[in-house]
Write a protein that binds this DNA or RNA. Structure first.
Length: 435
RNA sequence: GCAGGGGUUCCCGAGUGGCCAAAGGGAUCAGACUGUAAAUCUGACGCGCAAGCUUCGGUGGUUCGAAUCCACCCCCCUGCACCA
């Protein structure tokens, strides 16, 4: 039986994690009086969550740590419909068996973050398909639909652009999404006495819908709280890199790539992200910031952030591997790398190209490296060669080596008899291998 | 439809017969400096290791030689007219 941390809301606010909430003081009181049950939904729109879902996921954990019971809802039903909130276009529907496969994956992923062995406030994972699938369309329209005013729904900010804008439009399917999510809340209230829903700020409309529906259908007083959308100071979209989305699944984004992503956080964002994405106390984060500001040179915040979040998602082993790979790559001492590190890098850590004898004997390095995608044009390789900026397994190559590809990629210099780490410039790496 | 302006290498934008693979700026890549940062400076920036090859809306022509001149065509913008 855990005790309730009444300072939770204050902590969330100090972290900048509270965007909007219903019934300010009442919610605060509600949270401090007793252990409550809360939920957050995750729709299966892919076979893995990405770091965009991390803030709500970690917030569930924060509530659990403060003595409350978290429910992670995986949207087996809502995932079949598609949330139109702030989406510019109607989305393609996925088939039921694809969605149900994704549901299974998300369930596992979500389960790693919350604790199922903590007595009274053990976490639960539920699937809204369990209660949605058994309801008939007529029941849904009569019991749920009757409580919603189309007039109000049309005026929601989240669907406005779809209603107003010519050429986009919204199907009835997506338009009814809000009813399904609202029904989830009412249902979780009835089944689990769940009295709080959290979600991203784009979910405000759907959450308020659920609060109202619960009152109307179940006469229950429940609350909603939204979390901020994660933004970057330079205005670019958070969570994307040139190589794509940062996923939580290690087979989609390797621990090394994940670690590197956080290490690259801009100074202007890093302290905010420490508050959002780690469990470090706010005052400790403030200390880090104060220290960084008082010393010139490299701030420690990025490495703290990268280590904390990578450890959280990929565990100690994943973090160790990420650090080891980072160290050897950037220090140039590749001998630290184990064969399994290289195999992981081949799998998803670094872009990989396999070489064959014929290519090696026919093509100059400029062609080989540019065809691997390391540069857009062979000219860039030439430029780099001329500036001693190309290293193969730590050995500097020059323009003289350009026509000597077989020597550069010789058996003797390969790591574990088959790997070559090619570095172009300061941070562009590519793995080459021979069979 | 008439009159006028314009289409240049990723973007903006010079260039009106050879010295033009084409000024300048931006973006991008690399080097120095740094913190795997920012700013700054340097180099590269059609393709090619090279010899060389291919570009300036399209096609054809004039010329020893064309992004530049001529003809026709396509597209964009601006006035005017037509329609209403």
């Amino acid at each position: 039986m855990s005790t309730i941390d009444a300072g939770l809301l204050a902590d969330l606010q100090a972290r900048g994690l509270v965007n909007q909430m219903t019934g300010d003081e009442k919610l605060e009181q509600h949270l401090s009086e007793s252990s409550i049950t809360l939920y957050c939904g995750f729709d299966p729109t892919a076979d893995s969550l990405h770091i965009g879902s991390l803030v709500p996921l970690l917030t569930l954990k924060r509530f659990q740590d403060a003595g409350h019971k978290p429910i992670a809802l995986v949207g087996g039903a809502t995932g079949l419909i598609g949330d139109p909130s702030f989406k510019a276009q109607e989305r393609q529907l996925n088939t039921p068996d694809i969605v149900s496969g994704w549901v299974d994956k998300l369930k596992q992923q979500v389960s790693r973050f919350i604790d199922f062995q903590s007595g009274e406030n053990s976490a639960e994972v539920v699937n809204n398909l369990d209660w949605c699938s058994e309801m008939s369309a007529l029941d849904f329209l009569r019991d749920v639909g009757k409580h919603f005013s189309v007039n109000n729904m049309i005026n929601k900010e989240s669907v406005k652009q779809r209603i107003d804008r010519e050429g986009s439009g919204i199907s009835f399917t997506e338009f009814s999404y809000m009813l399904l999510q609202s029904f989830d809340f009412a249902e979780l209230y009835a089944r689990h006495n769940c009295t709080l829903q959290i979600g991203g700020s784009d979910q405000w409309g759907n959450i308020v819908g659920g609060v109202e529906l619960t009152r109307k259908m179940k006469s229950g007083h429940v609350f909603g709280l939204t979390l901020p959308l994660v933004t970057k100071s330079d205005g670019t979209k958070f969570g994307k890199t040139e190589s794509g989305t940062i996923w939580l699944d290690e087979s989609k984004t390797s621990p090394y790539a994940f670690y590197q992503f956080w290490l690259g956080t801009a100074d202007a964002d890093v302290y905010k992200f420490l508050k959002y994405f780690t469990f470090l106390p706010v005052n400790q984060i403030d200390d880090i910031q104060a220290q960084d500001e008082s010393t010139s040179g490299r701030p420690q915040a990025q490495s703290v952030l990268a280590a904390e979040v990578t450890g959280l998602i990929h565990g100690q082993d994943g973090l160790d591997a990420a650090k080891r790979i980072t160290d050897s790559l950037f220090s140039g001492s590749l001998e630290q790398l184990s064969e399994s590190d290289l195999e992981q890098l081949q799998l998803d850590g670094l872009p990989f190209t396999s070489l064959d004898e014929v290519e090696l004997s026919e093509k100059p390095l400029t062609t080989l490296l540019s065809e691997s995608g390391m540069t857009k044009a062979a000219r860039e390789v030439k430029d780099a060669l001329g500036r001693s900026a190309v290293l193969i397994n730590g050995v500097v190559k020059s323009m003289e080596d350009n026509m000597k590809a077989p020597e550069c990629f010789s058996r003797e210099t390969a790591l574990f008899g088959r790997f070559y780490i090619v570095r172009l410039g300061k941070k562009k790496y590519h793995l080459f291998g021979r069979g």
